[in-house]
C-alpha cells in the first residue's frame, strides 16, 4: 500500500516536473536559446493565480489556468520581441542566453518589489484534502487533478506540434530556418508564438505548483534548474522525453524525501549530475 502511494506521488510530481521542463524544451528546441528566465515565468504564473484567486475567490480553476497562461504568454512575447530576438541576431549564441539571465534578474526583483518576499500558496478550499477511492485505493484528488492537467497539456502540445499547420511550421523552422523562410514562413512571428506557448506552459506549471506547495519570488532558480535537467535528460525539443525525464526526477524526489526529509532538491540534482557524468564517460554526449 505504501509502495503504491509512493508510486502515485512520484507519478504526479513527475508529471509536474515534466510540465516545468516542457516549456523550456520547446523554446530551446526551436529558438536554440536556453531561456534562463523560464523559472521566473513559472513563478509569475503561480503569483498570477494567487492574485486572481484573492481578487475573485470563486473563480473556477479552468479560468485561473487560462488567465495565468495568457498573462505569461503576453510576457513571453514581449521578452522575445523586445530583447531575445535581437540578441539572437548576434553570431555568439551565448549573448541571447546572457540576455535571458538579465531578464530573469529583472523579473525576479520586480516580483519581490510588487508582492513582497513572502511564501504564498494558492487557496484551493477543500480540494487539498479531498480524496477519491478507486477499488479500495484511496488517492488524493488534488494530485490526481495535477496529473490530469499535466497529461492533458502534454497531449494538447503534442497535437499542436504534430497535427497542425502551426506545428509544421515550427518543426520546419527548427530543422532549417533558412529554407523555412523560403517557404514563406514568418520566422519572427513563429519565434514569438513559440515564446508565448513556452511561457504559457510555464504558467500552467506554476499554477499547479502553487496548488501543491507555497512559492516565493525566489523559487525561480529551483524551477529553472529542474526545467533544465528535464530538458537535458529528456532531449532537446522532445515532448515525450520531457515527460519521461520529469517522471524520473519526480520519483527521485518523492523517494528521497521519504528517507531524508529536509534535503530540498539535493537528490534530484545529484541524480541528474550522476547521469550526466555517466553519459560523459560513455561518450553519449555531443
Amino acid at each position: 500500500m505504501m509502495m503504491i502511494e509512493l508510486l502515485f506521488q512520484g507519478l504526479t510530481l513527475g508529471g509536474l516536473y515534466g510540465m516545468i521542463g516542457v516549456g523550456l524544451a520547446l523554446s530551446f528546441g526551436i529558438l536554440r536559446v536556453v531561456n534562463l528566465a523560464q523559472g521566473e515565468l513559472i513563478t509569475i504564473g503561480a503569483f498570477l493565480a494567487v492574485g486572481m484567486i484573492s481578487l475573485f475567490p470563486a473563480l473556477p480553476l479552468a479560468l485561473v489556468l487560462a488567465g495565468a497562461f495568457l498573462g505569461c504568454a503576453a510576457l513571453g512575447v514581449a521578452m522575445q520581441a523586445l530583447a531575445v530576438e535581437r540578441a539572437m541576431a548576434f553570431r555568439d549564441p551565448m549573448v541571447a542566453m546572457l540576455v535571458t539571465f538579465g531578464l530573469a534578474v529583472i523579473l525576479r526583483n520586480a516580483l519581490v518589489e510588487s508582492v513582497g518576499a513572502n511564501l504564498r500558496g494558492l487557496d484551493i478550499g477543500g480540494l487539498g484534502q479531498a480524496r477519491v477511492t478507486f477499488g479500495g485505493l484511496s488517492l488524493g484528488l488534488l494530485p490526481l487533478l495535477t496529473l490530469g492537467i499535466a497529461l492533458l497539456s502534454f497531449g494538447g502540445l503534442a497535437l499542436l506540434i504534430f497535427r497542425t499547420r502551426f506545428g509544421r511550421q515550427v518543426r520546419a523552422l527548427s530543422d532549417r530556418p533558412e529554407i523555412a523562410e523560403l517557404m514563406g514562413i514568418r520566422i519572427r512571428r513563429v519565434h514569438a508564438q513559440v515564446a508565448a506557448l513556452s511561457a504559457g506552459l510555464a504558467a500552467l506549471a506554476g499554477v499547479l505548483l502553487a496548488m501543491r506547495a507555497s512559492v516565493s519570488p525566489f523559487s525561480g532558480v529551483a524551477h529553472l534548474l529542474i526545467a533544465f535537467e528535464v530538458v537535458v535528460l529528456g532531449g532537446i525539443g522532445s515532448i515525450r522525453g520531457a515527460l519521461g525525464a520529469g517522471l524520473l526526477l519526480g520519483m527521485t524526489q518523492v523517494v528521497s524525501a521519504r528517507f531524508d526529509g529536509n534535503a530540498g532538491l539535493l537528490y534530484v540534482h545529484l541524480v541528474f549530475f550522476v547521469i550526466l557524468v555517466l553519459r560523459a564517460i560513455s561518450g553519449r554526449l555531443s
Partner: peptide, 14 residues
C-alpha cells in the same frame, strides 16, 4: 537596484 542593473546589462548586451 537589481532591476536597474538587469536592465543595464540587457541594454548593453543588445
Amino acid at each position: 537596484y537589481w532591476i536597474v542593473m538587469g536592465a543595464a546589462a540587457v541594454i548593453v548586451l543588445l
